[in-house]
Amino acid sequence: MDAVTASAQPPVRLAAVRKTYGKGGGAVTALDGVTVDFPAGTFTAVMGPSGSGKSTLLHCAAGLDAPTSGEVALAGTPLTGLDETRLTVLRRDRVAFVFQSFNLMPALNVWQNVTLPDLLAGRRTDKRWATEVIERVGLRDRLRHRPAELSGGQQQRVAIARALAARPAVTFADEPTGALDTRTAAEVLGLMRHLADTGQTIVMVTHDPVAASYADNVLFLVDGRIVDELARPRAAAVAERLARVGTTVEGAL
């Protein structure tokens, strides 16, 4: 694929993706033929009941888990057939992650953890931008602190700052504000909204209608399928739609 064609592709594309765990009668289908594009410069929230496949969708889209069938393309590169070395380089150079496990380096302080992706990729750190991101997540006074000296919420802020400071093509976030206070969560979501407006693609799993209201579009998953979506969401509308999806699931049991 040439550079022009690659640049025209959505940064994240899933085509007929299925993910099944186990075999035979004990097999569980986490994703059931999901097809979706996440265009450049968009912020998408993924919501649904517990066990609906949200995290599996995120992991397959990010190349952290291989689908049982179907195709995933990330930053214009099909993931099928990539060896682990090439996949690691692709994720390192083009993708950032904010998951519920912070994955911070315990021997490094806040500044070093935030700028670690640049060091690993051989890039020069944009110190002004890194400083702004750290300030926006409320860690200006914690630059020299190591993870063990921080609360759980502060560690999550470091993980968020690390992802956003690298200015990746795509950021995948799994409940990124779940451990944050309301004010800091709003700051972080506003920053993510700003980055999407400047061309970054953000895919976020959340259970919070307020967090989802910062997105351009909300996808609702049930039993591994996208069953609904909501554009230009408002928190009240998201909550109403989520309740409707939950009622549908309960009625099917």
Rank of each mutant, 00 (worst) to 15 (best):
M1F: 15
D2K: 14
P10Y: 09
L14R: 01
L14M: 00
L14Y: 12
A15V: 14
T20G: 05
K23N: 15
G24P: 05
G25M: 00
G26K: 06
G26H: 09
A27L: 07
A27F: 12
A30Q: 02
A30F: 05
L31G: 00
V34A: 01
V34K: 04
P39R: 03
G41A: 02
G41R: 05
G41M: 06
T42Q: 15
T42W: 09
T42K: 15
T44S: 10
A45H: 11
A45K: 11
A45E: 11
V46I: 08
S50C: 04
L58M: 00
H59C: 01
L64Y: 00
A66Q: 15
P67G: 09
P67K: 00
T68L: 11
T68V: 15
T68Y: 08
T68C: 12
S69D: 15
S69H: 11
G70A: 03
E71R: 14
E71W: 11
A75N: 10
G76A: 03
P78K: 03
P78G: 06
L79V: 11
L82V: 12
E84K: 13
R86W: 07
L87G: 06
T88C: 12
V89S: 08
R92K: 10
F102V: 12
N103L: 03
L104G: 01
A107K: 12
L108T: 02
L108P: 02
Q112Y: 04
N113T: 04
L116N: 06
P117C: 02
L119V: 15
R124N: 08
T125Q: 02
T125D: 00
T125V: 10
R128S: 11
W129I: 02
A130R: 13
E132V: 04
E132H: 07
V133S: 08
R136C: 08
G138P: 01
L139M: 06
D141K: 12
R142L: 03
P147T: 03
E149G: 10
G153Y: 02
Q154M: 08
Q156W: 03
V158K: 13
A159T: 13
A159P: 06
A161C: 08
A161L: 10
L164M: 11
P168L: 08
V170P: 05
A173R: 04
D174A: 01
E175F: 04
E175V: 11
L180E: 02
T182L: 08
T184D: 08
E187I: 03
E187N: 14
G190P: 06
M192W: 11
H194K: 14
L195C: 07
Q200V: 11
T201D: 08
I202D: 09
V205K: 09
T206K: 04
T206C: 00
A211N: 05
A211V: 12
Y214F: 14
Y214Q: 10
Y214D: 01
A215L: 13
A215D: 02
D216F: 14
D216W: 05
F220Y: 07
F220T: 07
R225V: 01
L230P: 14
A231W: 14
P233A: 05
R234V: 15
A236V: 09
A237R: 14
A239P: 08
E240S: 09
R241A: 02
A243V: 04
A243T: 05
G251T: 07
A252H: 15
